[in-house]
Amino acid sequence: MAKITFITNDGEKTTLEGTSGSVMSLAVENGISGIDGDCGGVCSCATCHVHVAEEDMERVGEASEIEAVMLELADDVTEFSRLSCQIEISEGIDGIVLTVAE
C-alpha cells in the first residue's frame, strides 16, 4: 500500500491510496485533473506528465531511455519530470508528492 499525493494546476492537493498498477491508472480512476492517460500507459501520449517532488526523486527513480526521449520534447519539462504511467505503485514510493505538469 502506498499513499500518493497529487497537486493539480489549480493548487488542490489530493491523496490517494493504491497497491498495484501504475500511478497514471490510479490518478485516472480517481479523476485527478490534468492526468488523462490517453494512450492507456504505453508511453505514447505524455498526457500523464508529472513533476516529482525533489526529495522523492531518488525513490521514484529515473526515466527509462524511451520515456526520457518522450519527455525531451514535452511541454513544461524539468529535471523532475516523469510520465506517471511508467511509475509502478509499490510500498517503496509511499508518501511521494507529484505535481501535475501544465
Binding site: D38, V42, C43, S44, C45, I66, L73
Partner: peptide, 19 residues
C-alpha cells in the same frame, strides 16, 4: 507491447484531436 511511443496520431502541437 508495453513501451510504444508511436506517432500514429502525430506528435506535439498538432497531435490528433480525434484521437
Amino acid at each position: 507491447r508495453k513501451m510504444n511511443p508511436h506517432v500514429a496520431f502525430g506528435f506535439g502541437t498538432h497531435n490528433c484531436l480525434g484521437a
